Simulated assay, not measured.
Amino acid sequence: MKKLVLVLLLAVSSVSMLAQKPKVVTSDKTGWHKIGETTVDFKNESDQILVLGADRFASVKIKVTDAPINLISFDIFFENGEKYSVTEGQEIKIPAESKTVALGGEKSIKSVSFRYQTLGNSTGKKAHVELWGMKTNADK
């Protein structure tokens, strides 16, 4: 019985740590769309945004507000199993954004995970990080 309780507690804590409400993109209009967002704390140094729905984008960028971060890198995972890694090593002051990363045509994004370092600030604010994607609809 103790083993069952331990396994259940472990499973619940793992799911709660990994649980994230996926962003459902409903618009397929040409232009920039917010894919997802998160608030960065000073404990975790990585995050993942899951993408569902109209998930085809030609390029992506990350916007930061409220507090600066050092964006180390991010990985874009596509529906077809491919992965595209971007090394940034860039301090993003506020409000600002990363460089735009072209994906070589519109591709279906499954998720994006990024690694960062939170930077101290005098107000103790947490950074608000948004992932944006560009739809070109070039294949329509």
Rank of each mutant, 00 (worst) to 15 (best):
S14F: 11
M17H: 15
M17S: 09
L18F: 12
L18N: 05
Q20S: 08
Q20M: 06
Q20A: 13
K23A: 13
K23L: 07
V24R: 06
V24G: 04
T26M: 08
S27M: 03
K29H: 13
T30C: 04
T30N: 12
T30D: 07
H33T: 05
K34D: 03
I35N: 02
G36H: 02
G36Y: 00
E37N: 04
T38G: 07
T38D: 09
T39D: 05
D41V: 02
F42C: 12
N44I: 12
N44Q: 12
E45R: 14
E45V: 05
D47E: 13
D47V: 05
Q48P: 01
I49C: 02
I49S: 02
V51K: 00
L52C: 05
L52F: 01
F57M: 07
A58C: 07
A58E: 07
V60H: 04
K61V: 08
K61F: 13
K61G: 04
K63F: 11
T65K: 14
T65D: 12
I69F: 10
L71A: 05
L71S: 02
I72C: 11
I72Q: 15
S73N: 13
F74D: 06
D75F: 09
D75L: 12
F77N: 11
F77I: 13
F77Y: 14
E79Y: 09
N80P: 00
G81I: 01
E82A: 15
K83G: 05
Y84I: 10
S85H: 14
S85C: 07
S85W: 12
T87Q: 15
T87I: 14
T87S: 10
G89W: 11
I92F: 07
K93T: 10
S98R: 01
S98I: 01
S98P: 01
S98C: 01
K99S: 09
T100H: 12
A102V: 09
A102G: 06
A102I: 08
L103C: 02
L103F: 03
G105L: 12
E106Y: 04
E106P: 03
K107A: 05
K107E: 02
K107S: 02
K107W: 02
K110P: 00
K110F: 03
S111M: 01
